[in-house]
Amino acid sequence: MKSLLLVSILLSCFLLHESGSACTSVIVSGKATPDGRPLMWKHRDTGTRYNHITFEKGEKYNFLGLVNSDSTDYDIWTGVNEAGFAIMNTASFNLKDDDVQEMDHEGRLMRRALEICKNQQDFEHFLDTLSRPMRVEANFGIIDAFGGAAYYETNNTKYYKKDVNDPNLAPDGYLVYTNFSFEGRKDEGYGYIRYESAKKIFADIYPQGLTPRSIFQEVSHSFYHSLFRKDLKEEKNTEWQLEQDLIPRFESTASIVIQGVKKGMNPELTTMWTELGYPPTAIALPLWVKLGEQQPELVLYSPQFKTAPLCYFATLLKTQAYPIHRGNGQKYIHWSELWNAQGTGYIQTLTPVWNEIYDLFAHHQAEWEEKGLDVEAINRLYQEAEEKIKPAYYHLMRVD
């Protein structure tokens, strides 16, 4: 009995560790997008309930970053700076090859990189000269304003570069990563089923050209399971569903697509499309470093909500869709809340609003690419977006 209990405890710890630090991601070179601008996506899974956006004045470059709302250390979990350099990570669980105990400095590393790196070469120099042990085990992804796009499988002493511009490595111009490293120990790590799901979805949408909209709606909001070859959205009359190895999960707290720039474009155009909270119930807003501290209040920390309003709204809807809080209740979705035959599920209700907000800004993209960002116009659009977003959420939220 003691042995069985120990195995059960260890298994629970492993599962909690994986779910608390897991993510799904992609880097797309400009050759695979309709407008030639690269994309970098991170779907964040974490044990931390809330996150929000912060604007920071760095040593060399100012930047925007995703931070935990319950922390004052302000580690960065995805971000972009004014030079157009952007960085993210997914945790790896098969690359560490030493007994170093103090780890998990990934957020600290990314914050420092945003402060001092202008491009891919700067980042590689940063990694080369960082003191060892680096205290990380992660797949870092970067894009820059000069065509750089790569993953770096990194542990305490070394890194392996995976260049998205290498046609032998990425023939279609993109790479997908979850929670294992290809240079790590075979069949260890996590996220293999999510990896296959994401690969399948990206292959399906690739012929139409990859865009921020298609990545959010077709991948981050997807309930496709590659092992079962089943999409839960095909089951509109089912009241409950088991949630296991899906891309969006109970632990999902944000989805971000950073839309870079082509060579020669002004790096200020680099756009951080941001969904805060549970992605299937979230609405994306585009952010730009140029706006400095004048970012929309919907993505900034609010003392009222103890996080960003958008994160709070989307998380509350997630909580309503995961109403069982004892035992393994977080693995069971009250599916009819999210998706149903009547078309009144949260996802179905919010998608038209999502598209309206996306189009509100996307319609100005060509103009801004030609003339530069119009800060006053963007602030007016934020106000218009808020007037559409808040009523949509208030209609769906049930607050006791």
Score class of each variant (00 low, 15 high):
Val176Ile: 12
Arg326Thr: 12
Pro38Val: 03
Ile324Cys: 05
Leu66Cys: 12
Tyr159Trp: 09
Val26Glu: 01
Ser12Arg: 04
Glu196Cys: 03
Arg229Met: 10
Tyr332Met: 11
Asp374Ser: 08
Gln348Asn: 07
Val261Ala: 03
Glu106Val: 01
Asn81Glu: 10
Val80Gln: 02
Gln244Thr: 09
Gln295Phe: 10
Asn119Leu: 02
Gln365Glu: 12
Arg132Lys: 14
Glu188Gln: 14
Tyr190Leu: 01
Thr33Arg: 03
Tyr322Leu: 14
Glu183Asp: 15
Ile53Trp: 12
Tyr159Leu: 06
Leu227Tyr: 11
Asn68Val: 09
Leu310Met: 15
Glu153Pro: 03
Tyr152Glu: 08
Leu109Pro: 04
Asn168Ser: 09
Thr274Pro: 05
Trp288Pro: 09
Glu218Arg: 04
Gly30Gln: 03
Leu287Trp: 06
Val7Trp: 05
Lys371Leu: 10
Met103Asp: 13
Leu350Gly: 07
Leu360Arg: 00
Cys117Lys: 12
Glu275Thr: 04
Ala282Phe: 01
Ser71Val: 04
Glu376Pro: 02
Lys96Ala: 07
Asn119Trp: 02
Val80Phe: 02
Ser71Asp: 13
Asp35Lys: 14
Glu183Cys: 10
Leu317Met: 12
Ser336Lys: 15
Ile347Asn: 03
Ser131Asp: 11
Asn156Tyr: 07
Phe313Asp: 13
Phe216Pro: 06
Lys331Met: 07
Glu337Asn: 14
Gln320Pro: 15
Leu15Trp: 02
Thr349Tyr: 11
Phe228Gln: 11
Leu130Ser: 12
Pro133Leu: 00
Trp288Gln: 05
Met1Phe: 06
Glu137Leu: 04
Tyr301Arg: 05
Tyr50Ile: 10
Arg194Asn: 04
Phe223His: 06
Leu287Val: 05
Tyr174Asn: 06
Ser71Met: 11
Leu317Cys: 14
Thr54Phe: 03
Val261Cys: 02
Val257Leu: 00
His325Ile: 08
Thr24Ser: 07
Gln120Leu: 09
Asn237Ala: 14
Leu360His: 02
Ala198Thr: 07
Lys96Leu: 06
Gln295Trp: 10
Met103Val: 04
Leu316His: 14
Ala284Trp: 02
Ile247Gly: 01
Met272Gly: 01
Asn179Ile: 00
Asp99His: 15
Met40Arg: 00
Ile205Asn: 00
